[in-house]
C-alpha cells in the first residue's frame, strides 16, 4: 500500500467518526423495473460526509442503473434520493448543485478541446470562472494539453478530464462510475491516487462504483456489495476485513500430514482447513500464529515457512454470495 493510502487511512480514522451523523447522500428504498424484471430492489444507502464509499458488484448487478437514478437520468419506480437534505425529485437543482459525476466511460464533445469542454459546463454555473477551469486541469495534470481536441485523448486522459469536469462546481459529493475501467495498471494507480488525494485534501465525499475488489480495499472506507439488484452487505471496509481469525499456510517437510493435522486438532485456537501439496492451511485465532509455530516445533514438526494469507473482500464476497466469479 502506498504512503498516500496510509496517510489517507489515518485521516479517515481521525475524522470519520466525528462526521458520521451528517449524510451527504441518503437513498431509501430505491427501485427500478424494466418490464417485469426488477433490476434494482429496495436499495438503501447512507453516505456520510468524508466517506469514500465503494459501490461494489459484478457487471450487471445494477450499479450503473442505481447511479443513474441517483443523478436523475432515469426515472425511479420507487423510493427517494436526498442529497444534502434536498429531494432530487422535488428540488433537483438544489440537490444536484454540489454533485460532480462521471457516469460510465466519460463522454465529451470530441470535436472540442479539453478547455472548451469544461467551458461548456462552466457556462451552466453562475460562479465557475476561467481560473477554476485552469485549476481543475492543473489538478488532473492536463494543463499542457488543454487546447488539444478530446478526440485525440487516450482513455486515461479522458478519465482524468472526466474527473476534472466533475470537480468544476466545487462538489461536496463526487459520483464516479467505474473510474478505472479500461485503464492500464499505471492509469489505474494514478486515478486511485487522485481520488484519495482529493478525499483528504479537498474534503470531497466519493461514491465509487466498481467491480474491482482491490480498488475498494485500496481507496474506500465504506462499501456496499450489490448483487442482482440487492445490497447484500454494507459496512466499513476495515470491519468487514477485520475478522477474529486469520488464515495461515504452513509449509512442512513432514510427510505424515495426518499426524500434523492431529496435533492441530488438539488445539483450541487453531483449526485445520485443508491439506495442500506443500503443507496445511490453518485458520488460527488472531495473534496465535507464533504460539502455533512454537507448538509445532515442540512436536518435532519441521516448519519451513509460515505464510499469512491475506483476507480480502474477494473472499468475503465469495463467502456471502456463494459465488462472485465475475468479480475481478
Amino acid at each position: 500500500m502506498s504512503k498516500l493510502y496510509l496517510e489517507y487511512a489515518k485521516e479517515l480514522a481521525k475524522g470519520g467518526q466525528l462526521m458520521r451523523e451528517e449524510y451527504v447522500l441518503e437513498v431509501s428504498n430505491l427501485k427500478k423495473k424494466y418490464g417485469n424484471k426488477t433490476v434494482v430492489k429496495n436499495i438503501d444507502l447512507n453516505i456520510s460526509k468524508g466517506d469514500v464509499f465503494g459501490f461494489l458488484g459484478p457487471n450487471g448487478a445494477g450499479k450503473t442503473t442505481t447511479i443513474r437514478m441517483i443523478l436523475g437520468l432515469i426515472k425511479i419506480d420507487g423510493g427517494s434520493v436526498i442529497v444534502n437534505g434536498y429531494n432530487m425529485k422535488n428540488n433537483f437543482c438544489n440537490a444536484i448543485e454540489k454533485i460532480g459525476a462521471v457516469v460510465e466511460t466519460p463522454r465529451f464533445y470530441e470535436y472540442l478541446s479539453a478547455y472548451k469542454n469544461l467551458k461548456q459546463i462552466a457556462n451552466i454555473h453562475e460562479n465557475v470562472v476561467d481560473e477554476k477551469i485552469k485549476e481543475v486541469l492543473e489538478m488532473v495534470g492536463l494543463s499542457k494539453r488543454q487546447n488539444e481536441k478530446v478526440k485525440n485523448y487516450s482513455l486515461g486522459m479522458k478519465q482524468r478530464l472526466g474527473i476534472a469536469r466533475a470537480l468544476l462546481n466545487n462538489p461536496q459529493l463526487v459520483i464516479l462510475d467505474e473510474p478505472t475501467n479500461g485503464l492500464d495498471p499505471q492509469g489505474m494507480k494514478e486515478v486511485r491516487e487522485m481520488i484519495s488525494e482529493l478525499a483528504t485534501k479537498k474534503d470531497i465525499t466519493f461514491l465509487i462504483s466498481t467491480h474491482l475488489l482491490n480498488e475498494v480495499e485500496q481507496i474506500c472506507n465504506r462499501v456496499a456489495i450489490l448483487n442482482e439488484g440487492e445490497i447484500v452487505i454494507e459496512g466499513a471496509v476495515n470491519d468487514l476485513l477485520n475478522r477474529e481469525n486469520e488464515t495461515i499456510e504452513i509449509y512442512t517437510e513432514n510427510k505424515d500430514k495426518e499426524l500434523v493435522k492431529k496435533y492441530i486438532k488438539s488445539l483450541d485456537y487453531a483449526e485445520c482447513v485443508s491439506v495442500t501439496s506443500k503443507g496445511i492451511i490453518i485458520e488460527v485465532v488472531k495473534g496465535y500464529s507464533s504460539k502455533l509455530n512454537s507448538y509445532l516445533i515442540s512436536k518435532n514438526v519441521e516448519v519451513s515457512y509460515l505464510i499469512p494469507r491475506n483476507e480480502s473482500l474477494e473472499d468475503y464476497f465469495i463467502e456471502i454470495t456463494k459465488g462472485g466469479e465475475q468479480i475481478a
Binding site: 437520468l73 444536484i96 459525476a101 463522454r107 459546463i121 454555473h125
Partner: peptide
Amino acid sequence: KNGTLKLPLLHPVS
C-alpha cells in the same frame, strides 16, 4: 447516442 446529452443534465438546470 454520443452520451453528451446528459452532460448539462448533471448540473443545476432543468
